[in-house]
Design a protein around this nucleic acid. Structure first.
Length: 236
DNA sequence: GCGACAG
DNA sequence: ATCTTGTCGC
């Protein structure tokens, strides 16, 4: 891991913004990442239970999505939720989980934004700097930017524009459901990020790595409830 | 000053 | 994120 990018996390919101301004220059979002070379993908997510955050990083084969490793970490939640500063809330517990990995995933998919951020350094970019590995941001809702209506077919997408700059894409990973928001994290470009997220979404709205991480983080239990309805947010 | 605002 | 019941559509 790249120790040079480590830094303290106990900052005030104001200091956190200043740090983001420093780190944004280090983020690389113009590098293609060939799908054909991907063997292992990791999903990253954090669940919060009463001041306690639990992180889960699930490494799975690609394609096939067989889990080969799960790294977890539990810590008191250190920072409030502030739009634009999510990495300062989830970063510490994620670092601990990342430190437990014994394999090196080819790409990490985050439940959150990457470059599609007001200062162009969402959690996927920030943690990508720490990991020194390719990362992708994939959120369920929009943090910043606007986009035209996305065609209804699976795979269709529309550029996410913020201040006349393409910062990501609204991507239809599944027909008849709202699009997800994809943006480069670090060491990858937007086109490659879109390709990978689509390749990771054979059936559900959210890419498989994120679903696996979501489960491992304890956000929801799988299987139908007592009424025969699905408990899975991404299964109608 | 008024909205918008990942998880 | 988490809380929380039923309901609508493919």
């Amino acid at each position: 891991m790249d120790l040079h990018r480590r830094h303290r996390w106990d900052l005030t919101p104001k200091e956190a913004v200043a740090l983001q301004q420093e780190l944004r220059a280090e983020v690389v979002t113009d590098r293609p990442l060939d799908l054909a070379g991907v063997r292992l993908v990791a999903g990253v997510d954090v669940s919060v239970k009463e001041n306690v955050s639990q992180a889960a990083v699930v490494v799975a084969t690609f394609p096939g999505f067989e889990t080969i490793e799960v790294a977890r970490a539990v810590r008191p939640t250190p920072f409030p939720y502030v739009p634009g500063l999510l990495s300062f809330r989830e970063g510490p517990v994620l670092e601990e989980a990342f430190g437990k990995l014994t394999v090196e995933p080819d790409v990490f998919v985050f439940d959150g934004s990457g470059y599609a951020h007001p200062r162009r350094i969402g959690i996927a970019c920030h943690m990508g700097l720490w990991l020194g590995r390719p990362t992708i941001g994939c959120s369920k809702t929009r943090l910043t930017g606007r986009h035209d209506e996305v065609p209804p077919e699976k795979g269709a997408w529309a550029p996410l524009l913020d201040k006349d700059e393409v910062v990501g894409a609204a991507l239809r990973t599944r027909a008849s459901t709202s699009p997800v928001f994809v943006s480069p994290g670090h060491l990858i470009d937007l086109a490659s990020a879109i390709d990978i997220v689509m390749a990771c979404s054979p059936k559900y709205r959210l890419p498989q790595p994120i679903r696996l991480a979501h489960n491992a983080a304890g956000a929801f239990e799988p299987g139908p409830d007592l009424f025969g309805r699905s408990t899975d947010p991404d299964r109608p």
